[in-house]
């Protein structure tokens, strides 16, 4: 009997999707990989709902309440949760706003910013509320593995999936352990 495929879900919270791009950057290595895994909820599949998965790959940190909700959903549904990339690990570039108060950031963007027409801070109830500070995901949930990098190299993604398939902890060798 064929081995069941590993179910993988991914999402980007306060991130730039660059980590997802890097994942796809594994070129032809994705072909044998796709024999072993299938995607659940992911921007790569456009599946919006999350079912129980083996691996959840989280790109981006927490900057709003929606991020928090999705992260907790992922934690509930994924056996192994992986923080992918600098933003998930330490907040990354979005966390550079932590130097300022949320109000200052909003005013800088929507009131005083260059070229702003009709200045007002968006307040549509549909918009997720922003958190005071951008946080790494480890501040909120248990994270099993971390893939550093901005973005992590494609080889690092391959390694983490292969490690889970082989039932061993991932081993990032020197060139795959990078923070930029």
């Amino acid at each position: 009997m064929k081995q069941a495929k590993l179910k993988v879900a991914t999402c980007s919270l306060a991130g730039c999707f660059g980590c997802h791009m890097s994942f796809l950057d594994m070129d032809e290595a994705i072909i044998p990989l796709i024999e072993k895994i299938e995607f659940d909820r992911s921007p790569l599949t456009d599946i919006k709902s999350l079912s129980d998965c083996d691996i959840g790959l989280i790109e981006g940190g927490l900057c709003n309440e929606e991020n928090q909700e999705i992260l907790h959903q992922f934690r509930r549904h994924c056996t192994i949760l992986v923080a992918v990339g600098a933003c998930a690990i330490n907040g990354g570039v979005p966390a550079m706003r932590n130097h300022f108060s949320l109000q200052e950031c909003l005013e800088e963007s929507y009131i005083r910013g260059l070229g702003v027409v009709d200045p007002q801070i968006p307040n549509d109830p549909e918009l997720p509320r922003l958190l005071d500070k951008v946080l790494p995901i480890q501040s909120a949930v248990m994270v099993d593995y971390f893939l550093p990098g901005c973005p992590p190299p494609a080889a690092a993604f391959l390694e983490i999936i292969n490690a889970v398939l082989e039932g061993r902890p991932p081993q990032l060798d020197y060139p795959n352990r990078r923070f930029d």
Partner: peptide
């Protein structure tokens, strides 16, 4: 924030982190 830092790649703190196998804070 290593991705934006001018010293990234030449930084001793970062280099020790790499060497000691650091993946996160």
């Amino acid at each position: 924030y290593c991705p934006t830092c001018e010293t990234s790649g030449n930084c001793q703190l970062q280099a020790l982190a790499y060497d000691l196998g650091m993946t996160h804070y």
